[in-house]
């Protein structure tokens, strides 16, 4: 160990050490933030300056989205206005393949996305440029593995999510044919974006009522439920007693009656 570190470590227990460290940390954080926000958002965007990204987005929008959402994203008919929905909403809707919609059915379904990541980012940038809104989530923010608490996330999930998405996140029915989709196998980023933007029937879960840390906990619980092996045998869909009843009338009673027929048949 070099002498400098040793000298520093001597001051570690000094009573002003903690406040001093905190102030230093805050100043350096602020400085980093200043620099970072002045810089373009990510390394990829460095190669595509922001203005051209927006232009690219506007071009894709005009081609693929404007027929429903209007030339200036002002919305028309059942297609809502996109002014102020923010990049998060675009990233969720386009990134999960819900938009563009295949048909004007009750509810946009998750499918293979039509636009690739770059195109989605461009669209998001364009929509975000129209009016401020929630920013898209990047992977660096999804620190649920480190910062989430599974049990707390389960508690939050059961209070806020299970009534629509079912106790194991398998989804469920809403009114008039709408449904809450399963959250199993959905990218964490998209789940997070859904919580802050409230896509389609889903309400918004504000950062003040469910804090970002709590959202990470919810993600951690969802991912834990997703990877939880079947502890008691075939899961039967994790939808409750209906499939259990079906199985007992088919396999259970079927097996027993089959054996009863053999048992009472005359041997030859």
């Amino acid at each position: 160990m070099n002498a400098g570190v040793k000298r520093l470590s001597r001051y570690r227990r000094h009573r002003y050490a903690a406040p001093a460290l905190l102030i230093t940390a805050l100043i350096s954080l602020g400085a980093t933030f200043q620099v970072a926000s002045a810089l373009p958002n990510s390394s990829r965007m460095e190669s595509t300056p922001k203005s051209t990204l927006i232009e690219e987005g506007a071009r894709i929008f005009a081609q693929g989205c404007s027929s429903c959402h209007g030339l200036n994203a002002e919305g028309a008919g059942i297609a809502p206005s996109l002014i102020g929905v923010g990049a998060a909403s675009v990233d969720f809707q386009v990134g999960t393949g819900r938009m563009p919609m295949a048909d004007m059915s009750q509810q946009a379904m998750r499918k293979d996305p039509i636009y690739n990541e770059e195109e989605t980012a461009a669209l998001a940038a364009y929509v975000a440029s129209l009016a401020p809104g929630p920013a898209a989530i990047n992977e660096a923010q999804l620190t649920y593995e480190r910062d989430g608490n599974t049990a707390e996330g389960g508690e939050l999930f059961r209070t806020n999510c299970a009534m629509c998405h079912n106790f194991a996140g398998q989804g469920g029915a809403l009114t008039q044919g709408k449904y809450a989709p399963t959250v199993m196998g959905v990218e964490a980023k998209h789940i997070y974006e859904a919580m802050i933007t409230g896509p389609q029937s889903m309400p918004v879960f504000s950062d003040k009522t469910i804090t970002p840390e709590e959202k990470l906990s919810i993600l951690k619980w969802i991912k834990s439920a997703e990877s939880e092996p079947n502890l008691g045998g075939a899961s039967l869909g994790r939808t409750g007693p209906v499939t259990e009843g079906l199985l007992v009338w088919t396999l259970g009673l079927g097996l027993l009656i089959g054996i009863a027929v053999w048992l009472t048949a005359k041997a030859r």
């Binding site: 209070t159 029915a173 259990e244 009843g245």
Partner: peptide
């Protein structure tokens, strides 16, 4: 205060 979608009893 909690509930799950698909709250059903046994058959």
């Amino acid at each position: 205060g909690q509930v799950t979608a698909g709250s059903q009893p046994d058959f």
